[in-house]
Design a protein around this nucleic acid. Sequence first.
RNA 1: UGCCGGGUGGUGUAAUGGUAACACAAAGGUCUCUGGAUCCUUCGUUGGGGGUUCGAAUCCUCCCCCGGCAACCA
Length: 559
Amino acid sequence: MVENTEKPLNFIEEIINDHLKSGRFGQRVHTRFPPEPNGYLHIGHAKSIVLNFNLAKKYGGLCNLRFDDTNPSKEEEEYVHSIRDDIHWLGFDWEDREYYASDYFEQLYEWAVKLIKDGHAYVCDLSPEETRAYRGTLSEPGKNSPFRDRSVEENLNLFERMKQGEFPDGSRVLKAKIDMSHPNFNMRDPVMYRILHAHHHRTGTDWCIYPMYDFTHGQSDSIEKITQSICTLEFENHRPLYDWFCEKLDIHHPQQIEFARLNLTYMVMSKRKFLVLVNEGHVSGWDDPRMPTISGLRRRGYTPESIRNFCEYIGVAKNNSVVDVTILENHVREHLNATADRVMAVLNPIKVVIENFPEGKVEDLTAINNPEDESAGTRILPFTREIYIDSNDFMEEPVKKYFRLAPGREVRLRYGYIIKCEDVIKDAQGEVVELRCSYDPDTLGKQPTDRKVKGVIHWVSAQHALGGEVRLYDRLFSVEHPDKVEDGQDFRANLNPDSLEVIEHAKLEPSLEKVSTGDRFQFERVGYFSVDPDSTENKPVFNRIASLRDTWARITRNS
RNA sequence: UGCCGGGUGGUGUAAUGGUAACACAAAGGUCUCUGGAUCCUUCGUUGGGGGUUCGAAUCCUCCCCCGGCAACCA
C-alpha cells in the first residue's frame, strides 16, 4: 500500500488503498486508457491519460493502451496513429501493451453464446424504433419484447446466422435478458450485438456482427486483468451492467470507478463541436493552435510537462467542474519561465535613430539568456545607430503612470543605454514614423546618479534585424461558458473574432537566425512563443503560446 | 415524473467529528535594467432547515439546486 503523507489522496487512490487492504486484486494495480479511435485526443483525454498512467506508476503497476474499436463505421487507422503519437508526446509509454477491443471479438462471441445457453441473452427481431418504444420512459417501465422467450436452440441458431451474414443490418440484435422494468435504462434488456455489414479497420470483413460498448468494455478489462477501470461520470449508470456481465460470465471482475471529465472556461470540449469548428473553417484544422486538442496544444507550443503538471494540479473528483483556463496558461508560463531563453522581438516596429551614436558603429552588448537559469549563459546583441522599438513603447502624450518613451523623456534600452526622445517625425497622415533620440554613453550597465529612469524597453538593431511572422493567438471564445447562449443560438455565437492576429513583419534579434520547429522562446516583455511548422528558411513563423502577465494592460483596463 | 451522481471563496482541489487549507483569478503593496519573475496583504463559517454531540463541512433527517441516463454510439 502506498501511504503518501505529503499529498492528500484523491478518492480513487482511497479506493485503491481499500482494494490493496482487502486484497481484492492481490496487491496489483493495473489500469488502462481506452480511447475510441474516432477522433483526436484533447486536453480532457490528457487528464485521463495522466490519471491512469500516474496511478499505475505510483502503485508499481501497469497501464495499458486499448483502442475501443467496436464500431467499424466510425473508426479509422489514422486516429490510431495520432492517438499513439499524442500519448507518447505527453510522456507516457505502454510498452508492448497495446490492445484492441477487436482483438477480443472471438472471445466476446463465445461469451455471448454462453449467455444465450444460460438463458441470459436472446435474439430480438424488433426494429430500432420498436426497441425504443418497448424500452419505456423515465416514468414508465418497458415492455417485454415478443421475442424474449425464444428457446435457447432458436436463439443459438439465429445468432449463428446473424454471424454468418444471413440478415441485413438492423434486422435483428442480440439482447441481454435482464429486466424491462428496471429503473436503470441500461438494464432494460440492453443490446449486446448488432448487425453491421461494414469494413473494420483491423478485422476487415471477418465480422458482420459487432458487440456494443457495454458488452465489450468490461470484458476487455477483464481479459487484460485490469483492476481499476477508470472512466468518466456518464458511465456511472452503466456500472450495474458492467458488473452484471462480469458476474454472469463469471470472469475476472475489475472495479469501475467514475470521475468528472475536464471542462475549461472559454472552450468547448467535444468531438462534435470540434468538427464544426474545423469544417466551418473557424480554425485551420484539428491542430490549430487555438484548439484544446493535444495536437493543437503541441503546435501552439505547450510543453508536455506543463500539461502533465496541469492535469495533476487540477485533481480528480466526482463533481462536474469547469477549470479556469488561466490555470492551464499559468502552468505553461511557470514551466517556460524556468526553461525558455529570452530574446528580443519587436512586433509593431517604429524606427528610432540615435543621433549622437556614430554611423556605422556596431557595439556588442551582452544579454542574459535566462535570468532564471544561469547555465543558459549569455549572448551578444549588436547595437547600432538605428534600431526598432515597439510602437506601444512610445506615447506622444503619455498618460499618468506611463513610464516608457515620450517626447523629452528617457527610457532604458534593455541591456543597453538610456535614450531620450528628442524629436518625433510624422508622415502626411500624422502617423509617427520615426523617433530621433539621443543616448547617454555613461549609462551602460549602470544607473545614472542624478536621475531615476524607470522604464525599460526591448529593441532590435535595424541593420541586423531578421524578419518573421508572428501569430498572436488568443482564446477561441470570448465568454467563459461558450455553451451558454440565447435560444436559437449555439456556441458559434460566442466565437472570439480576434482569436488570431497575424503580424507579418516582426523584427527579430539576429540570434534567431537558426531556429527549428518547436523551439520556444520568451520574447522579452511580450510573451512565450514557439516556432510553427509553417516556418520557411527565410521566414520563421512564431506562435504565441501565452502572453506575459501584463500589469500595465491591467492598469489601463481598469482606468 | 424514475434511477444514478454531485453541492466548500469568482475557480479548482483539501480538511475523513476537534480552531476551514493550498493554488489560480481579482484587488492593493514590495522589488526589479522584462510593468516578467520574486515577495507580502486582502477576499469563504461549507446550498437551506431541523437533529445527534462538549464540538459538525464531515453523522442522521427533510427540503432546495445542478449534472447524467430513454443510440442497434462510446
